[in-house]
Design a binder for these strands. Structure first.
Lengths: 201, 201
DNA sequence: CGCTAATCTAGAACAAGTTTCAGACTTGTT
DNA sequence: AACAAGTCTGAAACTTGTTCTAGATTAGCG
């Protein structure tokens, strides 16, 4: 548990922490079974052994819940990547490899991916802080892969464009309008923006 | 045969065409006033002077309706662009100019933009044909700006990446997590993929 | 321990998207 | 003109996200 979470909201007790985790797990499980629409708040509450009102105290909407699930998944991904970092030669290759690894993980759980991505892009201003946390995590993962400490404005814009492409390509794939091969190509294409070697000229 | 297949096959009568336009206009008007959530199907039906069941016969869901509104807007945009094409020197400049013009138009109607974009990215497989039509229109607008007749696979992937960036940057702007200036920079950055003039690599 | 405030539960209630249905109206055909 | 098929209306019903309430439970504290 981070110090920020403690500072932002009043710290959760042990049982509350357990409840929160149970809710997240129930949500992820239902999402994995049937995607966004299968995550029904009454069922989540049931599966987590918690009253509906309590669920809403922890996560003020279905979108909040699914964005939190996504944050959870990204944290796992980041740890996995720390243990086995991408092995490409340049930053562009490493970012592409990182995203393709994430993509393959999502392909194994397309329903979960559907629920998370739909929630993320449908989120309105009321969920901005949470969506922003997800976005910062994604940025951090990409910057990790680039092995960049101190990005310039241009590099940050490139990273944003990569994130945009990543999100939108996933959505397009999930709705059946783009193939796995096309997503792969899109990722490789956008990674071309990173440039083959930033400081050779 | 499905209802859609029939609708696509058999042309609408005059009155039906008028009803359809009335519904689209009512939808766009409500969307312009209060965004996605302000488009309530009962109100749309009311404003269009049509029964709820009829509204659902023309547009089988709120998402379908808003995606159709978007298609309508894109068709207008394309005509406008035909009349006054972008004047940049290279394809990259012209695409950026085109997208920035569209962006400025959306800034004038942020609520409408919200309703259309949220519908577009939230659409599931059941709306794929309609979303695909919007996507093809967008692609056509970009290819128009590039003045490209016969794009290669690589060029098509670049166009897809531009579209992804365009959609996702708009969503991010609409939810208040990215500024107008950042969206502009993202557009210019991704247009860098088009390559300055003739590619020499 | 005993008190107070916060939290949790069960369940009803509400809101908006969607479905359904019986009856009225249009349209095209003979 | 008369009929059959399809379309539209008005209204109720159903679904699922969200809110609300009254009472039970828990946590922190003197």
């Amino acid at each position: 548990m981070t110090a920020e979470a403690r500072a932002a909201a009043s710290p959760l007790t042990e049982r509350q922490e357990a409840r929160r985790r149970g809710i997240l797990q129930a949500g992820a499980q239902l999402a994995g079974r049937g995607g966004f629409e299968a995550v029904q708040m009454r069922e989540v509450a049931d599966a987590a052994g918690v009253a509906l009102g309590t669920l809403y105290r922890y996560f003020p909407s279905k979108i909040h819940l699914l964005v939190a699930v996504m944050q959870d998944q990204l944290q796992h991904l980041r740890l996995t990547l720390r243990r086995r970092p991408p092995a490409g030669e340049g930053p562009a290759e490493r970012v592409a490899e990182t995203l393709m690894r994430a993509f393959r993980a999502l392909q194994r759980e397309p329903h979960l991916a559907d629920a998370m991505m739909r929630a993320l892009t449908f989120a309105d201003r009321g969920v901005s802080p949470e969506v922003d946390a997800v976005s910062r995590l994604t940025t951090a993962i990409i910057l990790d892969a680039m092995e960049l400490e101190d990005p310039t404005q241009e590099q940050l814009s490139v990273v944003r464009v990569i994130e945009h492409t990543w999100h939108s390509a996933l959505i397009t794939w999930l709705s059946g309008r783009e193939s796995i091969a096309q997503v792969k190509r899109d990722i490789e294409t956008v990674c071309g923006l990173i440039g083959p070697a930033a400081d050779t000229r």
